[in-house]
């Protein structure tokens, strides 16, 4: 089965998030999406945690906003009433606006994806997606924009070296597998949110997900990560949520 989510091996940049930035500076996110239901959900998911969300539902409204304000990240739908999101992207780039751009499109064609990335978009996510996936990608974009590739991600006692892909609890280095590492980053990007098992499975296994509808393997996977973290001296941040997902939280 095809999937819009790139597999782990070619999407490491998606996990490069820096949580610590959220506390220092308020983040502004613009959601350009004409579908009300989707727009509202994204807005709700992203608002809070020191983020401010603005929305635009038409081409003209979006154009007006990007010409007036700067955003840390713009979520850009391609098919909009009144025009194409690609043209908005062009305007952004022609004016050298530094806003990060994540295209969210229903078009899953390689050409569109390449066009968008060639025009200067930072990432491309195909509908439908899990909000947690979107959050992880946005975080990665903002981190890259703000820190010009700084490679330290910290969460309380956890320190993650994003270049070396190393996780430390204090001075104690943890040995995580590629997927365990990816899972940890995904959790941190969606800190405080319940992440569904489906979202986790699709993020980590991509296509492989549909062949095992019982998500036992996710359970054992998470059990392993949790065990490694706790044994390394980390607090247990991973909480099971109602049997349908997990929540990474320090509260």
């Amino acid at each position: 089965m095809p999937t819009n989510k790139p597999k782990i091996r070619n999407s490491t940049k998606s996990f490069q998030i820096c949580f610590c930035t959220f506390k220092k500076k308020q983040l502004k996110i613009l959601i350009i999406e004409d579908e009300e239901g989707l727009r509202d959900s994204i807005e709700e998911y992203f608002t809070g945690d020191n983020n401010i969300c603005e929305t635009a539902k038409t081409y003209t409204a979006a154009l007006g906003k990007i010409n007036l304000y700067r955003y840390d990240c713009i979520l850009l739908d391609i098919t909009l009433p009144g025009g194409s999101g690609m043209d908005i992207l062009k305007v952004l780039k022609e004016n050298n606006y530094p806003d990060g751009v994540l295209i969210i499109s229903a078009k899953n064609s390689l050409d569109d994806r390449l066009d968008g990335l060639n025009l200067g978009a930072d990432d491309y996510l195909v509908k439908p997606f899990h909000l947690s996936e979107l959050k992880a990608r946005v975080s990665a974009i903002i981190r890259r924009k703000t820190f010009n590739g700084s490679n330290q991600l910290m969460f309380n006692e956890l320190t993650i070296d994003l270049l070396a892909k190393e996780v430390k609890v204090g001075q104690n280095q943890l040995k995580l597998t590629r997927k365990e590492y990816a899972l940890l980053l995904y959790f941190i990007a969606n800190k405080g949110k319940v992440v569904s098992k489906n979202a986790i499975a699709e993020h980590l296994w991509g296509d492989g997900i549909d062949l095992a509808d019982n998500f036992d393997f996710i359970y054992s996977h998470i059990k392993n990560v949790r065990k490694k973290l706790v044994e390394g001296g980390c607090r247990d941040y991973i909480q099971a949520a109602y049997g349908m997902g997990y929540k990474f939280s320090d509260q």
Binding site: L38, S41, S132
Partner: peptide, 11 residues
């Protein structure tokens, strides 16, 4: 996409 995002919101 809407259903998916609403489910994500619901949980």
């Amino acid at each position: 996409a809407v259903i998916n995002s609403k489910l994500d919101t619901l949980i």
